[in-house]
């Protein structure tokens, strides 16, 4: 039993409308938290479209990585830089959005004429009998072996770089005490832990005093 053609078309239309609407919301909302949640909507609808394209494994990976990890990372980063700030108005602020909108619309027209004019060489082969996940696994260990191993190196580099960038906390107004210079060579200059402990103690004390009142 398979989905009827009409059902496929309707689901494609719903997913497409959801995706374009959420993508517009991501770009146009002034509140960045709404944008981050709508970004998850874009990712979920793209995953549904992958399912319509017979790619069950990539649809799962899309949900797992984008919605489960990348979007959470973006939300945490938004919470970290979450300061209500009103950007200084630029002179001629209307010029850039209008110009960009014109350029983007022109690009879309260009791309869509290219898509509609090109005679695509549809493959007449039927779909392979293996599931996609087995095929992808075989590709990983035959002709995509080097990219597969390089991906782990890339992940290692990304993790090291992100940890170094995110953990370094310079405190320019703080005098460097001599005992700080006796740290082992490999540790990064970081905010001393006592500060964190004291501040958390203070808040818990506050909570206790509030509760006892």
């Amino acid at each position: 039993m398979n989905l009827a053609e009409g059902v496929q078309l309707v689901s494609f239309a719903i997913l497409a409308v959801m995706m374009i609407g959420s993508a517009l919301g991501v770009v146009l909302f002034s509140n960045i938290v709404y944008s981050a949640f709508l970004l998850a909507g874009v990712f979920v609808s793209i995953s549904g479209i992958y399912l319509l394209l017979n790619a069950d494994f990539v649809a799962t990976a899309q949900i797992l990585i984008y919605v489960g990890a990348v979007n959470v990372l973006i939300l945490f980063a938004i919470m970290l830089v979450n300061k209500r700030e009103d950007f200084k108005p630029l002179p001629n602020a209307w010029v850039r959005p209008t110009m960009t909108a014109i350029v983007s619309a022109g690009l879309f027209v260009l791309l869509s004429t290219m898509v509609l004019v090109t005679p695509w060489a549809y493959s007449t082969e039927s779909v392979s009998s293996d599931t996609t996940i087995v095929l992808i696994g075989q590709h990983f260990f035959s002709d995509f072996l080097l990219p597969f191993e390089l991906a782990s190196v890339l992940l290692l580099m990304a993790m090291v770089g992100a940890i170094i960038l995110a953990r370094r906390e310079f405190l320019p107004d703080q005098v460097i005490t001599p005992d700080k210079q006796q740290q082992p060579v490999l540790t990064l200059p970081e905010r001393p832990r006592e500060l964190v402990g004291i501040s958390s103690d203070k808040t818990s004390n506050l909570d206790d005093s509030r509760r006892s009142e």
Partner: peptide, 8 residues
């Protein structure tokens, strides 16, 4: 503002 530990 949240703590950087969440990001790690």
């Amino acid at each position: 503002q949240f703590n950087i530990r969440y990001y790690m």
